[in-house]
């Protein structure tokens, strides 16, 4: 038995709960795959993951590259189904995607033929078709202001910098007023400066609208700056959650003063140690298969 990692023990406060989640990507096993020598065995991406997330907490999931973080987030989003186990949202099993969860993608995923306004409008209109036109416009306007995009409303995505694009992505995800915000390495494609700037923006926005957030990230500093909890994943295949760390620095946080809080250095060292170890094993085994395989 794996120990389960309960973030909040009283069930009533649990917003999102993953119970013994596994995801197996089926291999190519049909007879013609064997004939064409393209058969492959099943791939267990994540196995037996338990995680409970309380209301209005900011949870980061961090793990070595390729361990199955996106797989996990897509399961929560309902975009794919777990092979076993169940995902409960407010105690109800998740059956598919839905507007109660807003998603922010690393690739921004803005529709290139729509302006900033139209991208956000599309989301609002789809989720609240019965809302009056003026009300829809008010919401779009509100979220454009919230993410600091005023003045760029009628620009198309290709006219925006990466940071601006992701602001639209965040505004689109929030404008439908989801219960949970899911973000898959939202700042991964940005340069360090823009990244830092957007981290501050995420802090500011979250202080205004506290929601349950699941953030996937590669960056230890980012996780420490933003999160209430950090779930560390082991390397794949059959990745698990090794540990859930509490990050209890007071809020609102400032990146400059974060380092001074007691425990920051230890927490950071611990995360680095774990990730370094896991990454080393992954890299070494890939080198070995390249030489011998």
């Amino acid at each position: 038995m794996q120990p389960s990692n309960y973030i909040s023990s009283p069930r009533t406060l649990t917003h999102l709960s993953l119970e013994k989640i596994s995801k197996v990507y089926p291999g190519r096993q049909e007879w013609f795959d064997h004939l064409s020598r393209r058969s492959s065995s099943d791939f267990v991406a994540i196995a037996d993951i338990n995680l409970d997330i309380a209301f209005n907490t900011f949870v980061s999931i961090i793990g070595p590259s390729g361990c199955g973080k996106s797989t996990l987030l897509n399961l929560i989003a309902g975009l794919s189904q777990p092979t076993s186990g169940s995902i409960l949202l407010n105690g109800e099993p998740v059956r598919g995607p839905g507007p109660d969860r807003g998603i922010v993608f690393q690739s921004y995923a803005l529709m290139p033929w729509m302006t900033v306004t139209e991208n956000i409008r599309f989301a609002v209109e789809t989720v609240y078709p019965k809302l009056s036109l003026t009300e829809q416009k008010r919401i779009v306007h509100e979220y454009i202001n919230l993410v600091g995009l005023r003045g760029s409303e009628s620009k198309h995505p290709h006219e925006l910098s990466g940071g601006m694009k992701q602001r639209v992505g965040i505004a689109r995800a929030l404008a439908i007023n989801p219960q949970i915000l899911l973000m898959d390495e939202p700042l991964g494609a940005l340069d360090a400066l823009t990244r830092g700037f957007l981290q501050d923006e995420i802090i500011r926005i979250w202080e205004q609208q506290r929601k349950t957030v699941v953030l996937i990230t590669h960056s230890i500093e980012e996780a420490l700056l933003l999160s209430d909890k950090i779930a560390i994943m082991t390397r794949g295949p059959a990745a698990r959650i090794a540990e859930v760390l509490d990050v209890s620095f007071p809020r609102p946080r400032q990146r400059e003063s974060l380092v001074q809080y007691p425990g920051y250095t230890e927490l950071k060292a611990k995360l680095e140690r774990h990730l370094y170890q896991e990454t080393r094993v992954v890299e070494e085994s890939s080198i070995r298969t390249r030489i011998h395989g």
């Binding site: 969860r101 993608f105 995923a109």
Partner: peptide, 14 residues
């Protein structure tokens, strides 16, 4: 069509 666009439409319940 980039599957991510379809994912967005799906997640919005379009």
């Amino acid at each position: 069509v980039d599957p991510v666009y379809r994912d967005i439409a799906r997640s919005l319940g379009a």
